[in-house]
Design a protein around this nucleic acid. Structure first.
Lengths: 225, 225
DNA sequence: CGATGTCTTAATGTCAACATTAGGACAAGA
DNA sequence: TCTTGTCCTAATGTTGACATTAAGACATCG
């Protein structure tokens, strides 16, 4: 009921609320299709409805929730069609991000990519916690977008990032072995190409990487929710 | 394009406010860098600050205005760097939209493109009102995105659409003759390729079309005021 | 004279009450 | 039984007041 917020940080309660709700969705507390009621969230987070409302609007722009006029807000469902749309767009964005980063990336940013690959490798060796691997996967691509240095491109990525995150979590649910077997090698190759690869090859690889994720997920959910 | 369907008549005041402010920016009432004060807008539009606030958040997601924590909201400025970012992203999106639409577009949607080209031609013949030409230009690309039928892709386009609109308005300010001389031919060629063109050629042409716009604008504002 | 601390002010951030609406329960009529 | 119209309720949409903050004015101190 009244599990109050530890502290309202300096960047607005709306952002805080958005982060908390997003985390709750990823953790499975709010499964796909679940309604997100403003009053309930406001009480649970210890903030007003206005802030919750603004936070939910953010999540809606991220595509993680859907809402209509006077029809409430609900968590999106993972349908095959949704996956097609998201991954098609992601392929185009990743391609641009990779080719831009190929020219603009600093040595430090390239090292950060290597570090993330190392973390993935370590995680696999220690058993391989699926949500943690997915988080590293997303962080890897975050880093590429950061290296590209195009604010608008990063915004476009943010607009589908949460959906990709959700889809990848679903993917490891339905095809963990396939994911676990490929995740390190694919990202290592991308990191290498970003450091010293041919632009054409890099562009193609970036698209293929997304294509691989798309197929892996779709193979697991053609029927039934 | 105004949605001729009366079905979507029920919108919130926030959407209304966003539309009005957006139009005011395009009309030049709020020049680049101008502050958008919530109380002032609320009084002028006859709605409460909450609705204005929500509307401004929309415009911020469209990249048309910028705002920080307790630092107010201002209209974006058209710098060369901004133009580079927006047009680089737009090239990637347009490429995907065109290639997707090449397969998915219906006959009716292709006809709509031809109709828009015809309107452009007529507009040029009648003297060529710059804002009207730009509006037709944007509408043409809206139609391509609609034909592609990818909701997420359309959202990404919407996120930069207003900025592109603003940049194009600036472009016709600095290089109207160049724009006027090319606009019809370039769009006619795109329409033809979408109807019966090679995918590769289409992809390249879509990118070139954006590149042409980028150069035309940048040539006019080498050193930003 | 320049640097610094405080202080004022005008804006945004937040909130809780009020108004409106969608969707379903329920009963009357054909 | 099916249809239809009414009412109810639980949610969202909207609002104005209150709290908080950033930025500049101003005076003080080194």
């Amino acid at each position: 009921m009244s599990s109050a917020l530890p502290k309202a940080a300096r960047r607005g309660l709306a952002d805080e609320a958005a982060d908390l709700v997003r985390a709750a969705i990823f953790s499975g507390h709010f499964p796909p299709g679940a309604p997100l009621r403003e009053v309930e969230l406001a009480e649970r987070l210890g903030v007003s409805r206005g802030s919750v409302r603004e936070g939910l609007a953010q999540l809606e722009h991220e595509g993680l929730v859907r809402g209509g006029w006077h029809r409430g807000t609900t968590v999106i469902r993972v349908t095959a069609e949704d996956a097609q749309e998201v991954y098609a767009l992601r392929a185009a964005l990743d391609r641009l991000a990779a080719t831009t980063a190929r020219r603009a990336a600093t040595a430090e940013q390239l090292s950060a990519l290597d570090r993330l690959v190392a973390e993935m490798t370590a995680e696999i060796a220690e058993g391989g916690d699926a949500p943690r691997l997915v988080a590293l996967d997303i962080a890897f691509h975050d880093q590429i977008y950061a290296a590209a240095g195009n604010g608008r491109l990063t915004s476009a990525w943010k607009a589908i990032r949460s959906q990709v995150h959700l889809f990848q979590l679903r993917r490891v649910d339905v095809a963990y072995d396939h994911y676990r077997a490929r995740v390190v090698d694919e990202h290592r190759e991308l990191a290498a190409l970003l450091r010293s690869g041919d632009i054409r090859t890099l562009a193609r690889r970036a698209e293929k990487h997304v294509e691989s994720a798309r197929r892996s997920l779709l193979a697991g959910l053609p029927t039934a929710p």
